[in-house]
Design a protein around this nucleic acid. Structure first.
Length: 419
RNA sequence: GUGGGUGUAGCUCAGGUGGUAGAGCAACAGGUUGUGGCCCUGUCGGUCGCGGGUUCAAGUCCCGUCACUCACCCCA
């Protein structure tokens, strides 16, 4: 038997409604905020991600599905969407049309990690980006908007964690100070922290070992104390705007993100209803990504949100409305009724009704049971008796009432009865 | 890549100290000669993840292996 690959999922019919529901809600909300959808290819040249995300990041160095095509070009299944969107923005000169471009996407991503709760190898994200504005309004809108989308879906107890990791120049400066401050205590950190110290020192703040966190609290200078004046002002304005929009947040000076392109604002929204992978979304500002991809410099902010994680929360709090069906089920009895029924079914369908009929030539009892199971609102019964009288029976499944309708007028009559 | 947990019917799971498998739900049929939900009855359905070993005998004990899952790591 063939099985689905590790870390992938089949989304079966009884679950698909949930996806359609959140996708619809997300699209509606983002369209209202005047974002436009963009769809980019699922694979790109590997270098796009190496340069965009950073070749030292875990995502690029060990989690990508990379292969070579017949032309010997190295290609990669996209592990995130910000770099592809920026690539599309640059390639199609979207900046020429408008100084500010607001884009959103809903798409599938691939990362070769060990699967666990809230983490798959093929997964889906929605996200959106504001490209062209360096101002704090853009940062605040991004955060306010995801927050509002979650709220709209019925999620309330979320934690918004906010930080600024400064512009590139002030961060370079800070990293040196951090390195000097921690060097002499390095021996007291755990093994993986010692590796992080060499590779990407900011990641030390992610460590879950208590003793490491205590050392950081004692000896690590805060990045917030080493921002430039412009960085500070930007950060403060973002906070003021969030307060103005009543978006609750907390400053987390240890919040660092795993992708190299971030500058200044970084944020993450977490939920206690998820497993140890508790971030529903993460994002921030990336003012140098365009340049890193050989485009002209353009500031941008954005966010990416995990769809599977979002669904996990919604199921946890039971916030997905029931799918409502308006099904009309057609029960057929006897040889000579079949064509009449088939004709009526296709007529009703062409008028926009959701109609189904029995394919098993079963007893009426079985067909009624089937109709009940499928949650049909109405059942049309067409049998030999009806054909003789030139009538059909229309039964309301909720009340149990049924009435006879002239066959030749059935389509019109049903319209007024079913409504 | 490293650890822990779990693998018995379509689904959820029972099966002390070894004696070749069971329940509930689901599916299907019947209880009405043409009428669903509730109830009753019956039917269908399993190489007990896979391979090997111990034994007269293994779902049960031992070894191996695979899969799923949670956690580390990292992130959405």
């Amino acid at each position: 038997m063939y099985r689905r690959l590790k870390g992938t999922k089949d989304i079966l019919p009884d679950e698909i409604y949930q996806w359609q529901y959140i996708e619809r809600t997300i699209r509606d909300h983002l369209e209202r905020n005047n974002y436009q959808e963009i769809r980019t290819p699922v694979f790109e040249v590997t270098e796009l991600f190496a340069r965009g995300i950073g070749s030292d990041t875990d995502v690029v160095s060990k989690e990508m599905y990379t292969f070579t095509d017949k032309g010997d070009t190295s290609l990669t299944l996209r592990p995130e969407l910000t770099a592809p969107v920026m690539r599309a923005y640059i390639q199609n000169n979207l900046g020429q049309i408008n100084p500010v471009t607001k884009l959103y996407y809903i798409g599938t991503l691939f990362r070769q990690e060990r699967p666990q709760k809230g983490r798959l190898r093929q997964f889906n994200q929605f996200g959106f980006e504001i490209i062209g504005s360096e101002h704090p309004e853009a940062d605040a809108e991004v955060i306010q908007t995801v927050y509002a989308i979650y709220h709209n879906l019925g999620i309330n107890d979320l934690k918004v964690r906010l930080n600024s990791i400064g512009s590139r120049s002030s961060r370079q400066h800070y990293l040196k100070i951090l390195q000097m401050a921690l060097e002499k205590h390095l021996g007291n950190f755990c093994a993986s922290c010692q590796q992080r110290f060499e590779k990407n020192i900011l990641r030390l703040f992610d460590c879950k070992v208590d003793s490491c966190q205590a050392l950081l609290d004692h000896y690590a200078p805060s990045i917030l104390d080493h921002l430039s004046n412009e960085d500070v002002q930007h950060f403060e304005e973002v906070q003021a705007l969030l307060n103005a929009a009543y978006v609750p947040f907390e400053i987390d000076k240890k919040l660092v993100r795993g992708l190299d392109y971030y500058t200044r604002t970084t944020f993450e929204i977490t939920s206690s209803l998820l497993g140890s992978q508790d971030a529903v979304c993460g994002g921030g500002r990336y003012d140098h990504l365009a340049e890193d991809l050989d485009g002209s410099p353009i500031p941008a902010v954005g966010v990416a949100s995990g769809m599977e994680r979002l669904l996990m929360i919604l199921n946890e709090i039971n916030a997905i409305p029931q799918k409502e069906t308006k099904l009309i089920y057609t029960a057929v009895l006897g040889e000579n009724a079949r064509q009449v029924a088939f004709n009526l079914v296709s007529l009703l369908r062409s008028r926009g009704y959701q109609v189904d009929m029995d394919f098993m030539r079963r007893s009426l009892k079985a067909q009624m049971r089937d109709a009940g199971k499928k949650q049909a609102k109405w059942v049309i019964i067409i049998g030999t008796d009806e054909i003789q009288k030139d009538k059909i029976v229309l039964k309301n499944m909720a009340s149990g009432e049924q009435k006879e309708v002239q066959l030749s007028l059935a389509a019109d009559q049903i319209e007024t009865i079913v409504k």
